[in-house]
Design a protein around this nucleic acid. Structure first.
Lengths: 146, 146
DNA sequence: TTTTAAAAGAGAATGATTCTCATTAAAGAA
DNA sequence: TTCTTTAATGAGAATCATTCTCTTTTAAAA
């Protein structure tokens, strides 16, 4: 998932948001960092080119990006927020060993779930979306982030 | 899900843990409070009968209960930890309106998922368990906790 | 180029959780 | 029952991710 500078600029502008260097580089960071980065990792990445960005700004920009559907929040067991540049509804693989999170999408699975819950309505509850948290372990660990 | 005093005592003793009044009342609180209580709600409940319990003790006891499989941690969108007295593998309904969390168990669903992932192995990943986060809204809101 | 509302910066404040260390108590041994 | 030992609790300080406040800066429209 990479996006050119102009691509990133457009994504921000399309939402009617002001295009600032801070917003650009935060979105760029999320697209470049694999494994659903933490705020800390995002800040570390950005400071290479933009050493003076304020922590509060990063949090504020992330909130803006999330509420404009440019980024999603991902919560882990570990209780630190992480961010995901993939916007479409999808599931997550969580490695219990190395903390790596991988996106998982499968249309057939979503169809099966949809059908199941059509046939098995939940009393007093209207489903909006379903996310699977698939816990397990990677056989070959890729990039261990922490 | 209610349990008698002796029942609670046994659950703690069976794990080889010392039976303390603090552990007893925290486990009792989780069984009695509906809707996957927060630490704050657990403390509030306990202080009625046990006004001097220390906050740190509650956190420590909860960790002990979690690592001994007497209680599970549940994380919500709102990023405050909540606790669940239901130990068996199960799914959660999250109400996006009222923050109510309800346990959901369905053996047929688990079977369908098991079969799906047997037929659709994920490259480089061994699944240990799968949890559904079913987001939606209750038609009739029950006990709104906050 | 000017204007202005929105965004960013700096750093203090917040608040859930963890840590430290002295005191207390559970549970097995005597 | 009493003693002993080890683990648990209490009290409050410390931590640290996140939020807030308020001033300064800047994007973008006029």
């Amino acid at each position: 998932m990479n996006a050119s500078i102009n691509n990133i600029r457009n994504k921000i502008a399309e939402k009617g948001l002001k295009v600032t260097p801070q917003r650009m580089s935060i979105l760029e960071a999320i697209y470049n960092l694999e494994n659903h980065p933490t705020v800390e990792q995002i800040i570390e990445f950005i400071r290479k080119k933009h050493p003076n960005i304020a922590t509060g700004t990063v949090y504020k920009v992330l909130d803006t990006l999330v509420s404009n559907d440019l980024v999603k929040k991902v919560k882990t067991e570990k209780d630190i927020m992480r961010y995901d540049g993939l916007i479409e509804n999808h599931h997550h693989l969580y490695c219990v060993v190395c903390d790596h999170i991988e996106d998982y999408m499968n249309a057939e699975l979503d169809e099966i779930l949809k059908r199941f819950f059509e046939e098995n309505k939940i009393d007093n509850f209207i489903i909006e979306d379903i996310k699977l948290q698939i816990n397990g372990r990677f056989i070959i660990h890729k990039n261990v982030n922490r």
